[in-house]
């Protein structure tokens, strides 16, 4: 089903659910607006809340059903990407967070959000044990890498249902997924690998640059927590919500046009956000 391209957020919005999302901000997080936009397009309202307002109790985590740590450069990646922000959460909001995780709630971390969740131990969180088991090391090339990548789900989950692939940007200096062999085996056994980097034709990247842009172990681009309620991923689907946000959209447009087909408004990446909303619906 395609929509005409002239329709935009607001006009294509589906019925909005009552459950709300809490999007963390502050200290250099920078993707909060487009993340809110993605959820809004999918039918979920969100509040962007500065971490200090949670610490000051101006907002309550328990008023929300989805907690999002969006992309960004919290604390400029100093002392390791996501580390300082995770420390701020751990040192000030730990009880709220564990309480939030006890309920039937979801947590999403994208890019810097993944780095924060990894440092907090919210992923992988085997047996609800929140400790650091995985790390996102500096990219093998040693610099930030901003490019479009193709990722595919490794397993079907509430997050990945119906997704064949996501083509969206990565943009990080530290996304090189690393863990011990034992942890990797447990991730595989428990079907916790959410997305892996692959080639344009969907074959595995097998660590080859640029398909695997950072050197990640087993091409891992995203994982879930052991209970499946937390998704953490490096690529940014919220930056390619529209058809025109895709890298090769001008070529795709020509191909569709020659076949007299309509050009869609949304990209297929929006499926991830629709899945989140479906979970609560």
């Amino acid at each position: 089903m395609t929509r005409t391209i002239s329709s935009h957020a607001g006009t294509t919005r589906q019925d909005v659910i009552t459950e709300k999302a809490l999007i963390m901000s502050g200290y250099g997080i920078n993707s909060e607006l487009e993340t809110k936009d993605a959820l809004s397009r999918a039918g979920m309202d969100a509040d962007i809340v500065h971490i200090n307002d949670l610490i000051d109790r101006k907002y309550q985590m328990t008023d929300y059903r989805l907690l999002v740590f969006p992309g960004g450069f919290s604390y400029g990646d100093d002392t390791g990407a996501g580390n300082a922000y995770a420390n701020r959460v751990r040192n000030n909001l730990w009880n709220d967070l564990t309480e939030f995780l006890e309920d039937d709630n979801l947590v999403l971390g994208i890019c810097n959000g993944f780095q924060i969740l990894a440092n907090l131990g919210l992923v992988p969180a085997f047996d609800k044990h929140y400790k650091r088991d995985i790390a996102l090391m500096p990219n093998r090339k040693g610099v930030l890498e901003c490019r479009y990548v193709t990722i595919k789900p490794a397993h079907e989950s509430l997050w990945t249902k119906g997704i064949e692939r996501i083509v969206c940007p990565v943009s990080h200096g530290e996304g090189n997924f690393s863990c011990s062999k034992e942890i990797l085996q447990r991730l595989k056994n428990q079907k916790m690998i959410a997305f892996t980097y692959c080639r344009d034709d969907m074959r595995p990247a097998d660590g080859e640059y640029p398909y695997n842009p950072n050197g990640s172990t087993a091409d891992i681009a995203g994982i879930t927590s052991a209970d499946g309620k937390v998704l953490a991923m490096m690529p940014h689907p919220e930056r390619a919500m529209e058809f025109v946000n895709q890298y090769d959209w001008t070529l795709q447009k020509e191909k569709l046009r020659r076949k007299q087909l309509l050009v869609p408004a949304e990209s297929l990446n929006m499926k991830l956000f629709h899945n989140i909303v479906e979970y609560f619906r």
């Binding site: 920078n30 993707s31 993605a38 610099v143 930030l144 890498e145 901003c146 940007p169 946000n245 001008t250």
Partner: peptide, 21 residues
């Protein structure tokens, strides 16, 4: 240079610094 500069943040990428296959 283009790929070490984040050119996709804020979600508005339409025609970017590098183009085509």
């Amino acid at each position: 240079i283009s790929i070490q500069y984040d050119h996709t943040v804020q979600g508005g990428h339409v025609i970017g610094p590098v183009q085509g296959l």
